[in-house]
Design a protein around this nucleic acid. Structure first.
Lengths: 208, 208
DNA sequence: AAAGAGGCTAAGCGCTTGCTCACCGGCGTT
DNA sequence: AACGCCGGTGAGCAAGCGCTTAGCCTCTTT
């Protein structure tokens, strides 16, 4: 474990940047509903109901249902990027930084899998402008991982014939944890993170 | 390349088991629409329109919109399982069979990414019974990969500390190709398959 | 005590949805 | 020539959708 794993403040107290409380309750309810049923299968009445409010209450805090999705997606992507960036900026060899990045990124996708599912799999439901904004954040995440890989190759730590392709594969592997992770499964989010970090080090041919 | 890669007949002439022609045209239209927008965001009018028919025509060939999804999902899962099974049953070492399985499985997910997207990411939209039926097929796919891994470990070809966990990771990596693969990208489905086979051999610590 | 502001609700509007039904035209059989 | 069958259509129904609006209740300010 390195310093990059701690992700100080905000990881286990999520959404507290969303105020007032009613807006946060609605947003949390929306995350649950979107994760369970998908954006399009979720009704505004369902969201409001889960938050213990009337359907109209939603529109006091959000202009549209899509804006609600956008706020979730934006905050989630910011968090995910921050996690990757934190690991990339930490001390250590490329292998150590890559392992730290995968470990914390995967831990987030497993531990907050409801949020991650919405963030990663409901992009198509965003409006054009909002989607473009989010895609920009994803390109940054891609850049962070690619840079670690490039540095590892340059330092002779990694054996990677195709850095862009491997970047996509590594991110894909981590992201998809949100789809299959089950709270009742054998492994905790921490354990999956550690396991996946090892898998990724193997993928890049890291020198032991 | 081994015999398992050929997947004789049916891979490039898909859906020809769906008759009559009108039913097939509707199904193909539904695959496109579901892949682009998602099941819940697709209307029966959209599907019928893409097939050049009136909205009512759909209900001559399918009882409900959900039945249409189920037929797509069922045929797709059958195909995916057949591909994995074919590679697993072929001749060769565990490493060769694993590579063949990943190669053809990934090639299918990339080459038929519209179908694969629907098949892999719209499970939640199925009714309870239909979903249970499909989950059974997925368990079989899992079993096929797991068996190759076990055999490779037993033969001393692989170094895999956690076979079930690695099985999930390998399948997850392959399936997620359907999400990110882009026809306008750098690589053909074949190339992605070959690349991914190499990545997976590294993940399982295959002896070169 | 009066007034203003803002969070919230009940009711409902206009629209779209999945799906139905009465009807229609071409075609093989008699 | 008349008939029945079958795949197809036009019109439309009931239900549910996202979202709006008029008004209420509570809290703060004066």
């Amino acid at each position: 474990m390195t310093a990059a794993d701690e992700t100080p403040g905000g990881d286990d107290t999520p959404w507290d940047e969303v105020v007032p409380e009613a807006a946060r309750k609605l947003l949390v309810a929306a995350v649950e509903a979107f994760a369970e049923r998908g954006y399009h299968a979720t009704t505004t009445r369902d969201i409001a109901g889960r938050a213990g409010m009337s359907p109209a209450a939603l529109y006091i805090h959000y202009k549209t249902k899509e804006e609600l999705l956008h706020r979730i997606s934006r905050i989630g992507h910011d968090k995910a990027l921050e996690i990757l960036q934190g690991a990339a900026d930490s001390e250590g060899t490329a292998a150590e930084r890559l392992a730290a990045a995968v470990r914390s990124f995967v831990r987030w996708h497993a531990g907050r899998h409801a949020t991650a599912r919405v963030v990663q799999y409901e992009l198509d439901a965003l409006g054009e402008e909002h989607r473009a904004e989010i895609m920009e954040l994803r390109r940054k995440s891609d850049g962070v991982v690619r840079r670690i890989l490039n540095e590892g190759v340059q330092a002779g730590e990694f054996d990677v014939p195709d850095v862009p392709g491997t970047t996509v594969a590594v991110l894909s592997l981590c992201i998809d944890v949100a789809r299959w992770f089950n709270v009742e499964g054998r492994r905790t989010p921490d354990e999956v993170g550690v396991f996946y970090a090892d898998l990724v080090l193997r993928m890049v041919g890291a020198t032991k």
